[in-house]
Write a protein that binds this DNA or RNA. Sequence first.
DNA 1: TAGCGTATGGACCAGTGGTCCACAAACTGT
DNA 2: ACAGTTTGTGGACCACTGGTCCATACGCTA
Lengths: 210, 210
Amino acid sequence: MSRNRLDNLDPEKQRILFEAATEEFAKNGFDGASLNQILKQSGMSKSSLYYYFDDKADLFVTLVERTAAILFKHVGHFDLDELTANNFWSYFEGRYGRAMAFISNNGWVIRFGAIFYALRRDPKRGSATNRLFQTARSWVEAIIRKGQSLGIVRNDLPESLLVDSTMGLLESLDRWMVTHWDELTAEERSAMPTKHLGLFRDLLALPAKK
Amino acid sequence: MSRNRLDNLDPEKQRILFEAATEEFAKNGFDGASLNQILKQSGMSKSSLYYYFDDKADLFVTLVERTAAILFKHVGHFDLDELTANNFWSYFEGRYGRAMAFISNNGWVIRFGAIFYALRRDPKRGSATNRLFQTARSWVEAIIRKGQSLGIVRNDLPESLLVDSTMGLLESLDRWMVTHWDELTAEERSAMPTKHLGLFRDLLALPAKK
DNA sequence: TAGCGTATGGACCAGTGGTCCACAAACTGT
DNA sequence: ACAGTTTGTGGACCACTGGTCCATACGCTA
């Protein structure tokens, strides 16, 4: 519903609204963000906003989707068919490096990720995040399956646990990176994709025989 | 301030208040929980509550502290001096198993953990969580340092990254466990401490030479 | 009995997300 | 050119939120 309506909204007005909303959400988190403040800042009226969006959560998720689209454009799309046993880890290392470069210049991206996860855990409003979360998760799942079929990802744990742990580690690393970015030297920064991928490898690779 | 006051509050009234608060926070998360609802449920008046607590966050953190104390009683305290290169992993496996048993019977414990982390990330009210978080984090830190000095925990990454990743993994595993508990067979359950500890080991142990 | 800290009820506050309705502007078919 | 419908907007209004304030009551010591 709101999709078609939003497409008809003057792009300039969209820009102004999204800019104000991004700032407010990034600064105050989901619950902390004030719709009234966003409205005041963007000059839009409340009835208009509720004409284009179902509710506050819908506005935020739409924002996240746009952000994700931008990120993907910078990083490049995944193609599972390109993966082989030889390039598996290095393939992601390349993507990881590019994502890292983008994120480091746009700290609010991670902030959005954190808010998104927090919102997701909210029993009442988490449903708004399902659409996007399922796409993200199904990618990780597909990648892990592909890795397993190539014989380089472990197979001894429930798949859902493996996927969840992977996403948990990903979130921690992202957050750590943004928090400590300023303290890092140029060498440390360029070494990070390799090091971080190493951690995923430790977690996902076939367990060593004991 | 509120500490001394709270100690003087009739234990029965405390119990009633904490029970109502626990239920409300567990059901609705931090922002979703309604103080007014807690007050109505517990029969306490607002001015009383604000006499014993600084604010909503203070109430919640106090609740978490009590929960943590109970959990620790069931799990047993850590003693770093007991750790050796030989018992390092199995020591935690034992603790982990006991914590798991307790948590599985008290799902809201994990829920509280999640809320706690979410609250912590809130730029405005995160400060309330500092006291407790610092104690928890310093334990993980001390354990990792001990492991490093025993020569069985990796030393090739920034310590803060190692600690953060460990806590991220811990959170994921906990949440996964609570979510999937019902689907698990008895054997799977009893195998979990070993398997989960294996994941920590993969993450923290010395990286294999390449 | 006076004075004091502890404790509580309840009115009150600005701000919240969300609803509702009247109305305007733009498009439609006749 | 007119009537009718759809798309869009301003603003009053709602129940509820976390938090403040003050009058008052109880138990204590002097």
